[in-house]
Write a protein that binds this DNA or RNA. Structure first.
Lengths: 263, 263
DNA sequence: TTACAATGCGTAAATTCTACGCAATAATCT
DNA sequence: AGATTATTGCGTAGAATTTACGCATTGTAA
């Protein structure tokens, strides 16, 4: 929604195209060079940051909706996207009053005041997804109602996000850390060919702890999760590291066998 | 809903009390003596079995709704109940036609035909929960629209459940098997004091594989997850096994430390 | 050429996992 | 009462894995 007209149409006719009472919120994790960041946006007139989100089209599957919303925010398609929990307990989601206020300051930008029984004012549960991207590749073009956006290191996220979005991010992070042992997370955050230091740094960053470089390599190689190539990369004034690539066949086979990563 | 009147009220006024487009389905796993079963119900006029489920009250949190629905089906409260995924992709959920047919044969029992735009005919996403109970303790009292119910061994579940319920059960099972290493699952399925053979058999059943009795004991004891008591239980013509209890403090501490079970 | 910083590869010790052996126990059978 | 039987409690040797490093190699810059 990039124009005033689109927003107005959404407010007045959105309920015909989208399911009410239900939204999708995306914790978009951006990784680059030892930093793990999250994309936050600030809607017009609001003090606090929020996660990017959207509604589910009536003729769209849930997965399609999640990918569409993610693409609308990042301009990227085919990203790694994973549902992790549905939120419907928070007092801020049950308590209608606060919701109306925050929504109304936002929609005042298009001159609309939402009545308490407007579909955007009603109680809404949120399905949480997390996505992984290289945030340098992402071009964020804020929508009409979004005043500002930022990539924040996960350690620096303010405690006062909108609604229960702090809880959503925390759960997303926990899930990501659990999934890193069971899914080729790196496959979605690294170029097709990457160096060992690169993937090593990725794991250290996501898990927030030091991992011995040499044992890390041994494990990934022994399990057959990555494959060493004949090429090397030139990096500054140091020894050229070899390039590696994921062996996805072996990856899924290892998972079926029950052999699981751990560090 | 145990009377014709309650059902009629639900059909005609349910949309005022419940959120549309969204339901909760419960995979209720019942364990007893080396058997893992699931509670299935069959609605009036329907050929296939389905999972017990229900809708979310407008003034109820999601968790409250899940517990209420579970209690309505099992007459038990305070059970272990865990959300695991939200389903919104299945063709049977998108395709309105099939939904109407199955619903209508059910509601014909109270002489109602649902129109295509009735709230019960609309597209509905489902939030999946799984619960753990000792199925011998459960008193199932089928609701008015439920013709039949059964406890089926998870291995014997028919391939043609209603909607995407096969998929839901499979995902519930996978989640349960993953969670058994990270949560005191046994705490919710065993009496406060239990014997080693009892908890051993529970793990073997859920994981569908043999676990060495002696190593199993060693591991649980070493990690401090269970505590041996001074009491023993009299069992038939054999040596009396000691009783054990869970050490929940140690359990959560072990989890934080990252020490995780595995067999 | 030398110094330096980073990578690739190996090895020994510590720890954990796995596969059993076997004694102890509580009935039941003779 | 003593032998029998099925089951539980506990221990130990060997295999396998994890952990903690040592050190040579490499590409560039001084």
């Amino acid at each position: 929604m990039n124009t005033r007209e689109e927003v107005l149409d959404f407010v007045h006719h959105g309920a015909e195209r989208f399911l009410p009472h239900l939204s999708i919120d995306c914790a978009i994790f951006g990784y680059h060079d030892h930093d793990l960041k999250t994309l936050l946006i600030r809607h017009h007139g609001q003090e606090n940051w929020s996660l990017p989100g959207g509604y589910i089209g009536r003729h769209e599957t849930l997965t399609e909706a999640a990918h569409r919303i993610l693409a609308e925010k990042t301009q990227l398609t085919g990203l790694f996207l994973q549902q992790f929990y549905t939120f419907g307990d928070s007092a801020t989601r049950m308590n209608r009053i606060k919701t109306e206020q925050t929504h109304n300051t936002t929609y005042s930008k298009v001159g609309v005041t939402l009545s308490p029984d407007h579909w955007l004012s009603e109680r809404t549960l949120s399905i949480g997804y997390y996505a992984l991207v290289d945030y340098l590749q992402v071009v964020v073009t804020p929508e009409f109602l979004v005043d500002d956006y930022c990539w924040l290191n996960v350690a620096d996220i303010p405690r006062e996000l909108v609604y229960d979005h702090n809880e959503i991010i925390q759960k997303a992070l926990l899930t990501l850390r659990a999934h890193i042992f069971q899914q080729p997370i790196g496959y979605n955050l690294l170029p097709d060919k990457f160096t060992l230091p690169e993937i090593h740094s990725l794991y250290e960053t996501i898990l927030c702890k030091q991992i011995d470089r040499r044992n890390f390599r041994k494990k990934l190689l022994t399990l057959g999760l990555i494959r060493q190539l004949d090429e090397q990369r030139k990096i500054g004034p140091h020894r050229s590291p070899f390039l590696y690539e994921f062996d996805l066949d072996n990856y899924s086979r290892a998972l079926e066998d029950g052999s699981i990563l751990s560090f």
